[in-house]
Design a protein around this nucleic acid. Structure first.
Lengths: 226, 226
DNA sequence: CGGAAAACTTGACAACGGTCAGTTTCGCGC
DNA sequence: GCGCGAAACTGACCGTTGTCAAGTTTTCCG
């Protein structure tokens, strides 16, 4: 049944690897990341409950392979949003487009996005995942580099952290359903604001000076969990 | 053994409710949110695994009660950071302090913080949790209101979403251990940048105009998960 | 064509969350 | 001071999960 892509087709089933990954996607879409079950995936793929082991090792392996594809699609979404820009768009507009791509991917695939940052469920040592994640980061990193050329390292670092934090926080809070201020128009405004904050001025905190980083008295309080 | 806080002590154990919540805290601190197990909590409290039912109903109830305390502590951390400011601090400085309080709490209690946003594990309909969460949000909301008085609703909304997204994204990415640019000095710079972006200018996106919110062609792509 | 390797199945195991009938303990009215 | 209703708590059971060990089937390749 169907062509075997050489070295992948075995036994009566064929492309089980693909079928299992698709099953994960289905379950994630229907019932969220926490509903993904090795046995349910096998059930949907029509195989026995431990058929995934030869392909993925354990549950972590399966989920890691799944989110690796998600990481690639996230990077592609950011690049696509930039590519959709008119040719005369400047670096700031491209940075904004990258941010919209990030947020847009999370909006279109909330459960997948949520799973991508469940570090307890995936193996961050996996080389394929690591490569995909670094590629995604590179998209944002490069967009920032082009938007603020020649900026000193500390300011660039701060702006990179700011941009990533903002789009990630927005996406997370929306995907998690916390509060109600995450409409699409707000998303665009937030991206515009953060881009303006990045490209405007070349200090690291505008007119606010950063005092030496001694811990504030309030922070040393009774909280010290780990 | 120990004094009974009236109406709470029963059987041979006494304040089981408190003991179970503390056990959750221990486990979360030692092994992360995903390691929390009803049976292990009961084990540490020295009771049988179904002893939690009368107090919390089910696992969700226990975790919800736990994160409700976390929500209160988060609000307290933000308020404490503001209170530690010199009296002559202006509204912008207080907004920044609030942000540092948010990030500081997440830094001091990363696992607790992570659990607080695991919407699959907690019951967001719980009245106590809802009240605590709204109180925490009110801290940020009020700090923003004082920092940008008389701003039009759309711009205020955008700035509120920006500020929350930023501190939350920063905290999440650091707690989740994604990437390596989340040092304390970067945290301060990011907060300063975002506060400057909020108080500076009264448009919603600085010099960037917001085009009508039609979906960009790149966004309508092949992604449509849910 | 035959043996080795890989894919897949089957069955077992410990641990989990939830439920239930029963037992123990407490608060409180008498 | 004493029972008695109510609540806390126990222990056993069920269905489900992830992982493992062993066996079976299929495919590849010499």
């Amino acid at each position: 049944m169907a062509v075997i892509p050489k070295g992948e087709g075995r036994h009566h089933h064929g492309a089980l690897r693909r079928a299992l990954l698709d099953a994960v996607g289905e379950i994630v879409r229907e019932a969220g990341p926490e509903a993904v079950t090795l046995r349910e995936c096998a059930r949907r793929a029509g195989v026995s409950h431990s058929a995934a082991a030869p392909h993925f090792g354990d549950k972590r392996g399966l989920l890691t392979a799944f989110v690796t594809e998600g990481e690639a699609r996230l990077a592609a979404a950011m690049r696509a949003e930039v590519a959709a820009l008119p040719t005369e768009a400047d670096a700031a507009a491209r940075l904004a487009a990258t941010g919209r791509g990030y947020i847009g991917f999370a909006r279109a695939n909330p459960a997948h996005f949520r799973l991508m940052f469940r570090t307890d469920l995936i193996d961050r040592g996996d080389p394929a995942w690591r490569a995909a994640a670094e590629d995604g980061f590179a998209v944002l990193d490069q967009a920032m580099a082009e938007a603020v050329p020649g900026m000193d390292p500390r300011s660039r670092r701060a702006r990179l952290a700011l941009a990533w934090s903002t789009v990630h926080g927005f996406s997370t809070l929306r995907a998690e359903g916390v509060g109600e201020l995450w409409q699409e128009t707000v998303a665009r405004d937030v991206v515009d604001l953060v881009v303006a904050a990045c490209v405007g001025g070349d200090g690291f905190g505008g007119e606010l000076v950063a005092p030496p980083p001694q811990p504030s008295p309030a922070q040393r309080g009774r909280e010290s969990e780990e």
